[in-house]
Amino acid sequence: MRKYIYLIIGALCLASAVYANESQIWGEMRIQNILGYGQEESWKLGPLFTMLQSQYFAWIFLGVLLGVPAVFFMHYKIVGPKVFPHSEKKYYAFNLYNRIIHQVAAVSFLVIVPTGFIIVFGDFFGGGTLVRMAKNLHGIFTIPFTIVVIPMALMWLKEALFNLDDVKWFLILGGYLSKEKQIIHASQFNAGQKMWYWVAILGGITMIFSGAFMFFLDFKMEMLHNLTGMSQIDLLRAAAILHNVMGFAVVALFITHVYMSMFAIKGAVHSIITGYVEEEEVKFLHNKWYKKLKDQGKF
């Protein structure tokens, strides 16, 4: 953990020091950067980024922003939410540490996602102060997320490993397509939650690094240069493409996560606020976990 923080701070200091001396973009490497634009043997990331950013990214984000909630709205109207009694026995599943880590990430996401959309649709907002502020908040709120992403990854890693039950879960989509309450054979986290875990953790880390690249421009990563043979500007282009594409997945699953906890399972959000999960919820949606807890005499 400490090593990780040092790495980040070190990289930031290095980035500004490098910038002060000689920029890789406008200095020595400028020609190399230019050649990488359209030469036969290059990756042609320049034209690729230009094409994707000018024609596709904003539309795909709009599709995700409207499409995912639209699907859930239909789900809410047709299938409806799952309602479990909240007066039954409870089990204390998330301790204070779990909740604080989760809430820091939650607040970060609640700022990062909307500000990201303001940047993507910057022309709609007319640019200037508002969008500039969104861009700055987008970067500043990455810091708290960066701090909690590793602790969060570690505290839920064991529960987030996929197993054979998850295949069954995916086949019936967790029973969310039926109005009846089915007994779902899942442990503490079901396959959907596991999917979100991996997208949030691995996707989140990818977003942090690609974002840092774009924020600092001269972020020096010898390892990446050597590994890929790409020039700095091509790494920036790759970072921008990756940041957008990964953004689709993170945003889509973030909306799903919010819908599930707030609407699809009525009141489920309270479990991460108070730390207590409801017996009925666990019995139906996480039956394997329920049996284990029952054996231990927790209910």
């Binding site: 980024f49 640019g127 200037g128 500007i233």
Partner: peptide, 13 residues
């Protein structure tokens, strides 16, 4: 807003 996208798109830096 100083996002840097123009720099990534520019062939000439």
């Amino acid at each position: 807003i100083g996002c840097g996208y123009c720099l990534y798109a520019c062939p000439f830096g």
